[in-house]
């Protein structure tokens, strides 16, 4: 840990020269700035090289004809943006990403909320249910992809064989081969993994609601439905917007389950922006077009973050 040692030396050096005054009154002087810099240096170095620099290069790449990792690229203006607008798969991937995101918010967010409302009322069995329902969230999305690809297996999978065994043989489907069904099927797998965290956050939010509000509602003669509408849900507003933004960002980043289960197929019916970026960057080697999609994806994420932060800030007031 040579880096830590160096930090220590610098920090104590600065302390030795700093006058022992009330530190807040010290104007932002040389010593403090130096110490602050050295304390931030490891983070700045790693983050600058592996995050900020790549963000800048992505922006630049979107204006070049880069066609591979070791090939020279030249400036082509907005050519890639024009290409993106004319590429039907870009539009399809964009549309499917929006649908995917809505599925995820409704399925994972909805299940998380519903379970939290039930579990938060429990006393003795609360820890048991909370722990048990959280288990799927511990599994890597890639492993979830392997699990659910087998569950959806048309001949040996849990779903079709189970349906057949209980006499619902005509409900069996080609869950991953039916173009109309595939995006939903894969999203179920993804949401099965995702809901546990949202459930925990909702439970924490429910526990923060002042019990006196329920007592007051009871005095006013409210039934449990009215208490849900007038006390519980308003009390959850802030957690709700937070979970929604988290679920939307998670949905936006969806990649592993699709990559493992269908690789975007059949006929691009489960292609998302992220899987299309991977295809363009590492298979088709069209880095210019891929970079345009990267920027689109970032703008999407930034918009969601800003909108929800504003919304939350307004609520807090």
């Amino acid at each position: 840990m040579a880096g830590v040692q160096a930090l220590d030396d610098t920090a104590s050096g600065a302390a030795a020269t700093a006058p022992p005054r009330k530190w807040e009154l010290i104007p932002a002087g040389h010593g403090n700035t130096g110490t602050a810099f050295w304390l931030m240096a490891p983070a700045i170095a790693v983050y600058g090289i592996f995050t900020l620099f790549p963000i800048a290069v992505t922006f630049w790449l979107s204006f070049t004809d880069s066609a591979g990792f070791n090939t020279p690229a030249s400036f082509v203006g907005v050519e890639n943006y024009r290409k993106a607008v004319q590429d039907p798969i870009v539009w399809q991937a964009l549309w499917q990403t929006i649908i995917w995101l809505i599925y995820h918010v409704v399925l994972a967010g909805g299940l998380g909320l519903g379970l939290a409302l039930a579990i938060a009322r429990l006393k003795r069995s609360q820890v048991f249910f909370r722990t048990a329902f959280f288990l799927p969230h511990l599994v890597s999305l890639a492993v979830v992809g392997v699990i659910w690809a087998n569950i959806y297996d048309p001949f040996f999978g849990l779903l079709n064989t189970g349906l057949t065994e209980i006499g619902l043989g005509n409900w069996t489907q080609g869950w991953l081969s039916d173009p109309a069904l595939v995006l939903f099927s894969v999203n179920v797998a993804s949401s099965w993994q995702g809901f546990g965290l949202y459930m925990l956050l909702f439970i924490a939010g429910l526990q923060d609601i002042d019990p006196a509000l329920y007592d007051a509602a009871e005095v006013d003669g409210a039934n449990s439905w009215q208490k849900l509408i007038h006390v519980t849900l308003p009390g959850l507003r802030e957690v709700m917007t937070f979970v929604m933004s988290l679920a939307m960002i998670n949905g936006l980043k969806g990649f592993a389950t699709v990559f493992v289960m269908t690789n975007g197929g059949p006929f691009y019916q489960s292609e998302l922006i992220t899987t299309y970026i991977y295809r363009l960057a590492f298979q088709a080697q069209d880095h210019g077009l891929a970079a345009v999609l990267c920027i689109l994806l970032s703008l999407f994420a930034i918009t969601i973050t800003i909108v929800f932060n504003r919304w939350r800030a307004r609520m807090a007031r």
């Binding site: 983050y47 620099f53 963000i55 891929a290 994806l297 970032s298």
Partner: peptide, 16 residues
């Protein structure tokens, strides 16, 4: 960087 999905910077990240 919290708002930027990792997939959005993957090409230069690989190059670095």
């Amino acid at each position: 960087g919290m708002t930027i999905p990792i997939q959005a910077i993957v090409i230069p990240l690989y190059q670095v």
